[in-house]
Nucleic acid binder design. Sequence first.
DNA 1: TTGTATGCGTTATCAC
DNA 2: GTGATAACGCATACAA
Lengths: 359, 359
Amino acid sequence: MVVRRADVARLAGTSPAVVSYVLNGGPRTVAPATRARVLAAVESLGYRPNGVARSLRMNKTMTLGLVVPDTANPYFAELARAIEEAAFAHGYTLLIGNGAEDDERQTAYVRTFLQRQIDGLFLVPAHGTPSCLPDLERARTPWITLDRQVAGTTDIPAVLVDNRGGARTATEHLLEHGRRRIACIAGPEDVYPATDRVAGWRDAIADAGLPAAETSVLNVPFGRHPGYVAARRVLSERIVDAIFTASDEQALGALRAVTELGLRCPDDVAITSFDGIAAAAYATPALTTMSQPFGELGRVAVSRLLTRITDPEGDTGISVLPVQLTARGSCGCPDPPGGDSNDDPAGAATSEEAERADT
Amino acid sequence: MVVRRADVARLAGTSPAVVSYVLNGGPRTVAPATRARVLAAVESLGYRPNGVARSLRMNKTMTLGLVVPDTANPYFAELARAIEEAAFAHGYTLLIGNGAEDDERQTAYVRTFLQRQIDGLFLVPAHGTPSCLPDLERARTPWITLDRQVAGTTDIPAVLVDNRGGARTATEHLLEHGRRRIACIAGPEDVYPATDRVAGWRDAIADAGLPAAETSVLNVPFGRHPGYVAARRVLSERIVDAIFTASDEQALGALRAVTELGLRCPDDVAITSFDGIAAAAYATPALTTMSQPFGELGRVAVSRLLTRITDPEGDTGISVLPVQLTARGSCGCPDPPGGDSNDDPAGAATSEEAERADT
DNA sequence: TTGTATGCGTTATCAC
DNA sequence: GTGATAACGCATACAA
């Protein structure tokens, strides 16, 4: 509109094609003198290539889509930041969508993104079977699932963490502290990581030879408020001495419930949870939680998606990353001073080639 | 690539142009019979228009850019969600960038976004004078500032909240509780909302006829950890009975510091803060804070930016939205049960026409 | 009412 | 080493 490539060519006394060669460093070589003239013209005119035209021609947008169930949820916010970090390092930009735990809206975003010709998609599927599956199938756009699997499928590429093992570790840690009546505040019944985390809790309970108190499993949404409500219920109805929650957010809510009921954490009720969001380190007491490797998650997810972009059939497995017990005060361990987390959820860049294909 | 408009036209026994007319509902009318054939062909082939080609032709992308200093920070996460919500309602999609409080990176994002021909940009400028200003100037892409103003400027369209008035209210509330030695944990010295919030604190202190204890102002970054460190320092070095913090995140850190030092909040140290993020309602005690109208912020920002897209010269002022005191336990008010916040930071949709220009 | 043709700004393939 | 030219897929003005 304002200044096109042809203008640059004219000023530099050459042809538009040559301008491209200079700016893109190829595919053909250009004489140093011409090159200098082109660069000068670009500078003086303030020419900036039109990315849309380029995308149309190149058939790639250098844009990745990310659809999560709730952008404002700290866990997804940290996950998004990690993805963004890794994508940026590879020269990709992120289109972000808030599915709002609603299939219809999630599908609306996926469709819009597909239409905008994103090169690849990260999806944290809402509960149930996403109605956008057919669209994704037809579009041939590489996509990969994050944090959750699509219900009932096992052949869709995914990057997950060891939910079952982590939940088991978290529960065992409560057992080691001598707790015996451990309730489980789980996620929604039909959401993948919830079921696996419940399974891990069950594993630990069973191994300890404890009765599987089914009534001690509360299926509520992830999030502070559901955690708060569930904790109030389980604490007033049952005699428990510990709670394992499926998310830090729920744990934060539970912590609040414990205090409101005049109980003390960890003395009366110990808590361990899952995720390792930054806020967990600043609660009082600080939360003992299974920390997810956000930085690694982002790097693996981006790296795998990019692989699938160049080779749509390749890299089709499921990555399961380990989680790590971060012992703090809520389980009964000594409570370290605030801010023991490294405060850098996205992690530092790795030695991977950081290539920015876009100029 | 897979299925083009021409394919649809062929199957429907008509021309590509007609396909456009049907899909876009204009600009020309088409016979019902033809229309039906086209629709059937679209359905059976699963044709989806290429948004990139459309953008090139139409010279608009239906995409808005949002660059914030830190995506993972809960305040910006809630702000982003509000923007996303409002943009979605208008059929716009959000390209999101994490400036990481770093001018260079912020500029990199702005440039990339501009190159991708976004229709408009929301910028939460990092401290100092952004080096992307010339780019924005040349690009003629409408943009608007959120939460902060560009240092030293007053003619750039912005959507802000009443930082000074809010800070004053928060501080006065502490005074009403009988506190007299009120420290101020501020943001970085050169960031707009920080200076205004300090000014508000100063207003209240001065009006109360109290000495302006300059040493009681601590300029630290927003964020939990800085708040924690600052609180530890101010609590051990000085005798204070209250703290006003410039952000909820800092307050959360401060709360942790209070507890670690064996003090009680609000008994020994009362706290009020600023922002009204969801987490504030679940701290123990829950934070008394100046709640920002996230939903309204998003709607106003989007609405104003869209206005500027249709009329680049119009709507060039600065919006200042009011903030509201949310009294909870940390100031000494009765602590309501957890989850008193409506848990819907983005707010419900208004009666504004929700138009989705994209199909 | 419908088919044809041109241009959006770029990259890449041609001859030169 | 360089200049013209054909796509990319769409929207629309124009001729039929």
